[in-house]
C-alpha cells in the first residue's frame, strides 16, 4: 500500500511562497519523478511528504489517512538522501539496522532483514565496514538498504544520483528501476535531470516555481508538452523555438521543433544557415546551425553526416512534429 494524495498543499518560508496551492495523486506502486530546475520546489515538496517540513496549509493523506500532522517516523515512508546521510560512526550493518533498532525489532529478526537487504544490494561483504571505507555507489546502496529494511509504504529519493560520476549514475539508475520492478512499492524520486526522469518514471511531475506544469508519462510529455516550459525541459538536446513570421505562418506565437525532427540538406530547405559547431558522436551528429534572423538551431542528424564548421546547410522541420504555442506559452 502506498497511495499518497496532496490536497491544496502550500508551503511558505516567511513571506516567500515556495509551493502555491497544489494537488497531486500518487497511486500505489507508481514510480513518480518530480523534475524541474533547481529552486522549483521539488525537494521541498518531497520534504513535505516526508514530514521533515510542515505544510503551511492543505492536507497530505497517506493510504487514505490524514498524515499532515504525523511526525516523519510514523508516516511509514523511507527516504534516501542526496548526500546518502549515512551514520559515519556506525558500520554498514548498524546503518542498515538503525531503523529496525529504533522500531524495537528483535536482534535476530533485524539480523535476518539486514542480511537479506545486503544480499539484494550486493553489500554482504561490506557489512562490517564504515561508510567512510566505501565507494560512492556502495554508499548509495547502503542508503537504499536502510530504506528497504523498513518495508515502507513508499520510498522517497532526493536526487540520489547527483553525487555519483556519470558511468555509475547510469548503473544505479538501472538498479533502482530493477528494485522498483521487484518490490513494486511506490517510489517518489526527485531530480533535476530530465534523462533520469524519462528513463525511470511511470509518471513525471514537471515543476516550476512550485507550480505543477504538467503531469504525465514520459512519452506523453515528450509527444504533447502542455507549454513552452515543459517542451523545453523534456527532451535532449533541447527543443528549438522559433518566433516571428515563421511562427505566424503556422498561426502561433512560437513554434517548437525538436532537434531530431529537422531534416538536413546541402541543397535546399526552409531555413538556410551555416554550421557553427558540429559534434560527431558516431551514432548521432549534433549540429549547431546559425540561421539569419533566428536563434541558433540545434539539429540531431545521422551519425554519418559529413558536415563541419562553416558549411552551408538547409533545414526543414517535419510538419507533423511541429509544436505550436500561443503568446502565453500554452500549447495550441
Amino acid at each position: 500500500m502506498g497511495h499518497i494524495s496532496l490536497k491544496q498543499v502550500t508551503k511558505s518560508f516567511g513571506a516567500t511562497n515556495v509551493i502555491p496551492p497544489l494537488d497531486l495523486e500518487i497511486n500505489d506502486g507508481e514510480f513518480v519523478v518530480f523534475v524541474g530546475p533547481s529552486g522549483c520546489g521539488k525537494s521541498t515538496l518531497l520534504r513535505l511528504i516526508a514530514g521533515l517540513e510542515d505544510v503551511t496549509s492543505g492536507t497530505i493523506a497517506i493510504n487514505g489517512n490524514d498524515a499532515t500532522m504525523i511526525p516523519p517516523a510514523k508516516r511509514g515512508l523511507a527516504m534516501v538522501f542526496q548526500s546518502y546521510a549515512l551514520y559515519p560512526h556506525m558500520s554498514v550493518r548498524k546503518n542498515i539496522g538503525f531503523p529496525l533498532k529504533m522500531a524495537g525489532i528483535s536482534k535476530e529478526e533485524a539480523e535476518q532483514k539486514i542480511a537479506s537487504a545486503a544480499e539484494v544490494l550486493n553489500l554482504t561483504d561490506y557489512l562490517d565496514r564504515r561508510p567512510g571505507q566505501l565507494s560512492g555507489g556502495q554508499r548509495q546502496r547502503v542508503a537504499i538498504g536502510r530504506a528497504i529494511v523498513r518495508e515502507p509504504d513508499a520510498f522517497l529519493f532526493d536526487e540520489p544520483l547527483s553525487n555519483l560520476d556519470a558511468a555509475l549514475r547510469v548503473n544505479m539508475r538501472l538498479e533502482i528501476s530493477e528494485l522498483h520492478n521487484s518490490l513494486k512499492t511506490t517510489m517518489i524520486y526527485v531530480t533535476h535531470d530530465q534523462v533520469e526522469a524519462m528513463t525511470m518514471a511511470d509518471k513525471i511531475v514537471v515543476l516550476r516555481a512550485g507550480y505543477i506544469e504538467q503531469v504525465g508519462s514520459p512519452l506523453e510529455l515528450y509527444r504533447s508538452p502542455a507549454n513552452l516550459f515543459v517542451a523545453g525541459f523534456i527532451g535532449s538536446p533541447k527543443m528549438n523555438f522559433v518566433e516571428g513570421k515563421d511562427a505566424e505562418a503556422e498561426g502561433a506565437h512560437t513554434i517548437g521543433v525538436r532537434p531530431e525532427h529537422l531534416t538536413v540538406s546541402k541543397t535546399s530547405g526552409q531555413w538556410k544557415g551555416t554550421v557553427g559547431v558540429s559534434e560527431h558522436l558516431g551514432s548521432d551528429t549534433f549540429l549547431r546551425v546559425n540561421v539569419e534572423g533566428l536563434e541558433p538551431l540545434t539539429v540531431r542528424a545521422d551519425g554519418e553526416v559529413e558536415l563541419y564548421h562553416g558549411d552551408t546547410v538547409y533545414l526543414t522541420p517535419e510538419p507533423s512534429k511541429l509544436y505550436r504555442f500561443d503568446a502565453d506559452g500554452k500549447a495550441i
Binding site: P71, P72, A73, F81, S83, A85, Y87, F98, M102
Partner: peptide
Amino acid sequence: PVDILEAARMDGATLRE
C-alpha cells in the same frame, strides 16, 4: 550535515535518540 539527523528522524528516532 542536517541530512544525517533528518535520516535518523525518518528512521524513527525520537529527539532524544
